[in-house]
Design a protein around this nucleic acid. Structure first.
Lengths: 228, 228
DNA sequence: ACATCGCCTATTGTTGACAATCTACAGCCC
DNA sequence: GGGCTGTAGATTGTCAACAATAGGCGATGT
């Protein structure tokens, strides 16, 4: 009756979820331009499936917010405005702050496990920074924050953050601003990790806030500092 | 070219959205028991439509989290555990706190408009309390908080909160604990409104936290006080 | 020349039928 | 009698055809 070793329970709901995940990955990687239309039929034939599951996947991404649907016109890739960036990062700050509190309240064990996962991600990130693989860096950046939130164990918080992470990747890639301060990127995440590990609650909150603020400034270009 | 008065733009996406809204309302009103299965076919015939739109609506509610889908088994009404209640209210606190900050930062005008809407809701709530219409009270309770969050104008925050509000109504009604402290219910919301109007940021945050904490205690019955 | 009206096409929205899958129950073997 | 296996029923998952709608484009009238 124990869990059979070496065997995986075959995925609960394959097709639509599979298509949605695949499509989301493509979108956040910028393989679809913002505002570009996504055709159900052609996608269905590309995936050798029917319009049904494709439609289901598209609707799912619409509800996540990375696609927008216009009645009888089709679905289009979300176009991000400055306001959207501010919204996304404001919510991210709220979610991560909440996750931080929950994590610190959950006990040392949970913090330790989370830190271990985060360390591995930072390590990978450093490698990708060395070879300047922006796609991978963006993915790991979001993976870091997603793992951070996941550490709190609040399923609703995790679900919410998944969407935010996808939108953030769209911000980063679509606006083509990329990471202007790549040299401090790993350092900033390491700082978050250190504060979490040390259990400095207030400092961690401040660091999260700063992290988000600087990200918004980088993305919107509204930083007050003047270019030399 | 101005907005035509007295005319409403016919809703962008009717059927599926319509079904979803209708169904969500029925669910949060407890017309479907937790764990109860929802059959696509019978629902389709009840609504005189096909399974397609119904399926779409159900999937939407699954993603919102008030239904759960088991592969090849069907969709079932979410069963809420104690842990879910804690999760929901933890996220609600985070969202409302964020909304409060955003609202106070947005300026006096926006705060005023929001307060006006909240006043009207409190007024309605007092009326329903007088006649002990629990359904209406729960609806207005959530409407208050939803309007509060909506006041901040962050579309993502609003979208997130919609789901939380629905889940909260399920908590309240399904657990049949209702409102044990109905006498102070209006007063508590009035207090939130007053603090918002006065712009007392810190006090407002504390009040929101208390509001959520007491709600969790009422719902989980883990209040330390012993029954006389 | 410009605005308006009507068709036309491309795409989604909807429908009913078909196939795959899961649970439950009954029969059978041990 | 207990446990396993095979079948039956029901329900979802998938599919291809049909209908409806929105926007584009050209004709037409002023």
């Amino acid at each position: 009756m124990a869990a059979p070793e070496g065997l995986f329970a075959l995925e609960g709901r394959p097709t639509a979820q599979l298509i949605a995940d695949q499509l989301r990955e493509q979108i956040v990687q910028g393989m679809f331009r913002p505002g570009e239309q996504i055709n159900e039929s052609v996608l269905a034939s590309q995936l050798s499936t029917s319009r049904g599951p494709v439609r289901e996947a598209l609707q799912r991404l619409c509800q996540e917010g990375i696609l927008v649907s216009r009645r009888n016109r089709g679905v289009f890739v979300l176009e991000l405005a400055m306001e959207d960036i501010r919204e996304i990062y404001a919510v991210r700050e709220a979610v991560e702050s909440t996750a931080a509190d929950a994590l610190l309240d959950a006990g040392q064990e949970q913090v330790k496990d989370t830190c271990q996962a985060l360390k591995a991600i930072i390590s990978d990130m450093a490698k990708q920074v060395a070879v300047s693989d922006w796609q991978a860096i963006a993915r790991l950046d979001m993976q870091f924050h997603t793992s951070f939130v996941a550490g709190a164990g609040n399923t609703r918080l995790i679900r919410i953050y998944k969407t935010l992470a996808a939108e953030s990747r769209m911000c980063i890639l679509n606006l083509a601003v990329a990471y202007p301060r790549i040299d401090v990127l790993v350092q900033e995440h390491q700082n978050l990790l250190d504060l979490l590990e040390a259990g400095h609650r207030e400092e961690l909150h401040k660091a999260i806030t700063r992290h988000m603020e600087t990200a918004v400034e980088d993305l919107t270009g509204t930083a007050e500092e003047v270019i030399p």
